[in-house]
């Protein structure tokens, strides 16, 4: 059952005279509860796609749907609400608020949405029950990314978007993060979209969307995705 749908989405950046088509007619679907991976080389337009989907940016043309909502038609205000209530976002550089503890960073998200999960519980679920009162600077990269994931999950979002979640991490930490994402997706039935330039990650995905030059070059489903913990790079 299609949950996310991109239909001929274009995103053209205009810098002065130069027009760059970061996303150039992208069409793909992702079903509910799937863990999708968008993979492609740097500059392929992956982040742009995710930003469009996450409501952080608007497309130049085409339609983007999530469930029954046509996101591409949202007003800025509606987009903010969309981000607030429907989307969980995990960034490559975690983007934790440095002045808030792990718990507070999660609360930062839970305090603004409708039916949040318990922040502490969520942190417990990501295995950080002992680091709740630590500041980001006192946490390792992996731990920070766990906090970021907890922050995204605690919102109980309809869609979890992760932009290069392992990009700044070493391989083993990256694996544990991916495992966390996969387990969460499986356990909670959350639809998760992960962006990566790393082909190794495609193994754990239900659906693999391959991009290049702003275009989707291949979409395939993986009937038997590997366990994330087995992935090595």
């Amino acid at each position: 059952m299609t949950f996310v749908r991109f239909e001929d989405v274009h995103k053209i950046y205009r810098t002065g005279e130069v027009e760059i088509a970061a996303v150039d007619g992208v069409t793909f679907d992702v079903n509910r509860g799937e863990l999708a991976v968008i993979v492609g080389p740097s500059g392929a337009g992956k982040t742009t796609v995710l930003n469009l989907l996450g409501g952080m940016d608007t497309c130049t043309s085409g339609t983007i749907r999530l469930g029954n909502d046509e996101i591409s038609a949202f007003t800025p205000r509606r987009l903010t609400q969309y981000r607030r209530f429907d989307i969980g976002f995990v960034f490559q550089f975690y983007n934790l608020v440095p002045n808030l503890t792990a718990l507070e960073n999660v609360e930062l998200a839970t305090q603004i949405c409708r039916e949040p999960l318990d922040a502490a519980e969520t942190l417990l679920e990501v295995g950080l029950e002992n680091r709740m009162d630590n500041f980001p600077s006192q946490l390792s990269g992996g731990e920070q990314q766990r906090v970021a994931i907890a922050r995204a999950l605690a919102k109980n979002p309809r869609l979890l978007l992760c932009d290069e979640p392992t990009g700044a991490l070493d391989s083993s930490t990256g694996t544990s993060i991916l495992t966390l994402l996969q387990d969460t997706s499986r356990r909670t039935g959350h639809t998760v979209i992960i962006i990566t330039h790393n082909h190794a990650l495609t193994a754990m995905a239900d659906r693999i969307i391959q991009m290049n030059n702003g275009q989707v070059v291949d979409v395939r489903t993986n009937p038997r995705p590997a366990r994330a913990s087995t992935i090595q790079w």
Binding site: T80, N95, L96, L108, I112
Partner: peptide, 16 residues
Amino acid sequence: RREIATIKVLGFYESE
């Protein structure tokens, strides 16, 4: 900037 962008992404309204 990043912090602000982050909370924007988290869905903070303008007033927030």
